[in-house]
């Protein structure tokens, strides 16, 4: 009788243990899928950005003769971004490329301030407003992605889900930061006032 009870208790404990492990596995898959969903959301917003850039450049190139190299940089980066596949394996490169593109577009918009005719062009104003909206949406998608990645990274690095992650080949992913290396450099105010 005592033996039967012990066996029953052991079986229940094993069952509970197996169930808990299964829940860990399920949560890990859910977190991975969440990151996939977030990545897809970012791609939707990035596509809007990529589609908008040619419209802005088409107007800018008529007025900003002295910014040819900047316009060419933006065009080149956009083409690279369009050709880059979106999956976990090249996240770091993708993030770096999109950040560079965002930085160059930022420089272009700032440079547009030096061209009053361009600044007052109605189409350009509309395009800039739309671009600002798109950037806000990208920022929101990025925050969602970072939240999902944080969850996943925690699961990948903390035991016992870390063991499951190793078995299933799920690794920690990089965050989508919005600061590029060049922007980290300290700003020389004197240089600005000297212009």
């Amino acid at each position: 009788m005592f033996g039967m009870n012990m066996i029953c208790i052991l079986l229940v404990l094993l069952g509970v243990g197996a169930f808990l492990l299964y829940m860990v596995y399920v949560q890990l898959i859910q977190k991975k899928n969440k990151v996939q969903e977030a990545l897809a959301s970012i791609d939707v917003q990035l596509k809007k950005r990529h589609d908008l850039i040619p419209n802005i450049l088409a107007i800018a190139v008529k007025f900003m003769e002295h910014e040819r190299s900047l316009i060419e940089d933006v065009t080149k980066l956009r083409t690279e971004a369009l050709n880059m596949k979106s999956d976990f394996s090249n996240m770091e490169d993708k993030i770096k490329l999109e950040n560079e593109l965002q930085s160059k577009m930022g420089q272009l918009i700032v440079s547009a301030e030096n061209y009053p005719t361009l600044k007052s062009n109605e189409t350009m104003v509309q395009a800039m407003e739309t671009f600002a909206e798109v950037e806000a949406e990208i920022a929101a998608a990025r925050r969602f992605y970072n939240a999902a990645v944080l969850d996943l990274n925690n699961a990948v690095e903390i035991y016992p889900s870390s063991d499951f992650a190793k078995t299933m080949n799920i690794t920690a992913l990089p965050f989508f930061n919005d600061i590029v290396e060049s922007e980290k450099a300290p700003i020389d105010a004197a240089a600005y006032f000297a212009k």
Binding site: E37, A38, S41, Q45, A136, E137, A139, A140, A141, R143, F144
Partner: peptide
């Protein structure tokens, strides 16, 4: 929508 909520709640 997780993205839109973050778009609103900056």
């Amino acid at each position: 929508d997780q993205v839109e909520s973050r778009y609103i709640l900056t």
